[in-house]
Amino acid sequence: MQLTLKIWRQKNASDKGGFVTYPVKDVSKDMSFLEMLDVLNEGLIEKGEDPVHFDHDCREGICGTCSLYINGKPHGPLQTTTCQLHMRSFSDGQTITIEPWRAKAFPIVKDLVVNRSAFDRIIQAGGYVSVGTGGVPDANEIPIPKNIADLAMDAAQCIGCGACVAACKNASAMLFTSAKISQLALLPQGQVERKTRAEKMVAQMDAEGFGACTNTGACEAECPKGISITNIARMNREYFSAVLSSENI
């Protein structure tokens, strides 16, 4: 396969940046998208040009490091992570536009690499159960109905890649934030801090500069882990009932 890549290049956070077009030849259909970029980069280095920087690590769809907005969609045409996208999803001669995640809360570091530490700060605001190591009850002392455990797991699967933010027309982080709030709101372990958690995490999400939710459902449609916007509704419930009934002034 031969392809034309239109890639966003930006030297650093303060650089203006722009698209650069690269032709690539001899692309195998069995390559993953990132391997195709590896091949491009090897060629660039051989020519003495700065390789394209992009984030990636596990390359098996679970670490959430890879990003890339490919032909107008986060992680490209399939509902998966970019590392699990293979070149057989593209056709010979195609032009592929590759952009970084675009959001105020995800500033660009270089080329296609963005800073997603806003997500860490949202979790730090309350995405945990405040138990220290040791001194906890036996695991089976807390029975949890299977369907509840399954729902919690559905939400807990979030890999923190940020595709939801990238896909959302408002760059909203509601799906990410709600997945964690949901997981812990569903489980008995999360009940103690339930109200405070919802209030603090939503406040942090706003402070990071993410947008609001228009319920377009784009996040759910693009989430590589299929996290449902049911979680956003649950977060809304959690938040509204928390602000009405908590004693946090």
Partner: peptide
């Protein structure tokens, strides 16, 4: 919401989602 994405995308396939 506009402020949350000061720089937009060059290409969009939003109709698919």
């Amino acid at each position: 919401n506009r402020k949350s994405r000061p720089i937009g995308y060059a290409e969009s396939a939003a109709s698919t989602n």
